[in-house]
Each structure stands twice: as C-alpha cells, then as structure tokens.
C-alpha cells in the first residue's frame, strides 16, 4: 500500500494507492474520494463500549470506516479542518494523540484510551488521550503546521498546541507564570512537558481561532 501526503502543509490530505488485499482504517467522514473498486464497511471504533468511551472521553468518532479492496484502487482521506498531516510508523511502540488528531491507520494499529489526569481537564485538554500502539503506519492531523521536537528537559507548550507525544513524555498542566501574569498575559494555563522523548506540535490552536473569531463577531 502506497501512501502519500499531498497539499502540505495547509490543506494536507492522504492519497492511498491500495493493492488487492490491502486495508486501511480511517476516522468517520474522513474519506474525500475513492475508486469504486474499494469497499467501505463501518465498524464500532474498537467495540461498542470502547467506541462510546472514545467518543465521549477521547473526542474521537463512535464509528470508524474500514476500506478494503480485491482489485486495488485509490482512496483520498482528509481531515475536516485546514492544516498539516503527519505519518508515524509504529513498531510495537506506543504514541499518545490529542483528542481529534487521529485520521487513519493501518489495520495492525490498535486504538485505545489513556488516562490523562484531572489536571488536563482543567487545562481544557480532556481527561483522556487516544493511545495508539501495535505495528503499522498511523496518520494524524493538526490545525496549522505540524513540527516535531526532541525534548530532554522541561519544555513549555501553550494548551491546545500539543498534538502527539511518546509515552516517555510527562505531561502536566500549570500556570504560565505567576497568578497575575498567567491571567493577564493571555497565556493562562500552559502544558509543561518533560522529556526525554519526542513531541509533535501544531502551529495554531482551535482555542486561539475561536477567541479570534469571537472578538470579530
């Protein structure tokens, strides 16, 4: 299965050239177009209970679509908002994704939920993370550009900019500075990440877009 991320970084989408017998799992409503030789089946996102938990706690869809083909074909998968997409290859390792970042994966990838902690809820980041593990490629998306960073010590990321990270990364939510500067600098709460490990960041945040739009209404 050949996969290519196109129109990066603003309007990235994934074109998959499927060979007979290939399969790919994608987020509900992610398919933009496909050959008529590809069959789509809808399934619970990891079982009924798991799907409900992922929907309400992980910000993911209740259902995922599985695309298969006997004759081969082309499939284009996209995300609902403008921004970049990235590919990760899992080789038995685990990654955590922010709610809503998952776009597609190969069938060998397992989608689960990881507890994020009460503080993350206060930081507006949700109580759970999507935990992807197993073997295979995974494609995830972001609002704005995606860049990765290797960190070893503590590193500060504004809430809403963290997209994915390795399990070796410690994540906690805290104030940007003192009580006064945290509330009047516009930064409020920030995410403090601790290495070693790799983090993926998005250059824009939905919270920022919402605040900007609100200010102009």
């Amino acid at each position: 299965m050949e996969a290519e991320l196109r129109d990066k970084p603003s309007f990235a989408n994934l074109r998959v050239k499927m060979q007979p017998g290939d399969a790919i799992v994608a987020e509900a409503d992610a398919m933009a177009n496909m050959s008529s030789t590809i069959q789509m089946t809808t399934q619970w996102n990891g079982g009924v209970v798991q799907a409900i938990l992922k929907r309400f706690l992980g910000g993911e869809s209740l259902f995922v679509n599985r695309f298969t083909t006997d004759q081969g074909g082309e499939l284009v998968i996209t995300q609902p908002y403008p921004g970049d997409m990235a590919c990760l290859e899992l080789k038995g390792n685990t990654m955590f994704l922010q709610p809503g970042a998952f776009v597609a994966c190969e069938p060998g990838v397992k989608l689960g939920l990881g507890w994020a902690g009460w503080r993350m809820l206060i930081g507006g980041e949700g109580l759970f993370r999507l935990k992807v593990s197993g073997n295979g490629r995974i494609w995830f998306g972001a609002y704005g550009g995606i860049f990765q960073k290797e960190i070893d010590e503590e590193y500060i990321v504004d809430t809403g900019h963290l997209v994915a990270y390795e399990p070796s990364i410690g994540v906690r939510v805290g104030m940007a500075g003192g009580l006064f500067s945290s509330f009047f600098s516009g930064e409020g709460l920030v995410t403090r990440v601790n290495g070693p490990g790799r983090i993926y960041l998005q250059s824009r945040s939905f919270g920022g877009l919402a605040a900007w739009t609100n200010a102009h209404l």
Partner: peptide, 23 residues
C-alpha cells in the same frame, strides 16, 4: 521517575547520551 504515567523509570549516564527506561 516520570513519563506519561509518572511511573516510568529512566536511568541515564553522566553525559545523558544514553537513557534506558522501563515502565
């Protein structure tokens, strides 16, 4: 000790060029 779960244990050499960890 750290990581996502807070239970991961990291062992590092003095120049931090090698980090071995397990959960």
């Amino acid at each position: 000790q750290g990581g996502y779960s807070g239970k991961m244990l990291f062992c590092r050499n003095p120049d931090r060029s090698i980090t071995i960890f397990s959960e």
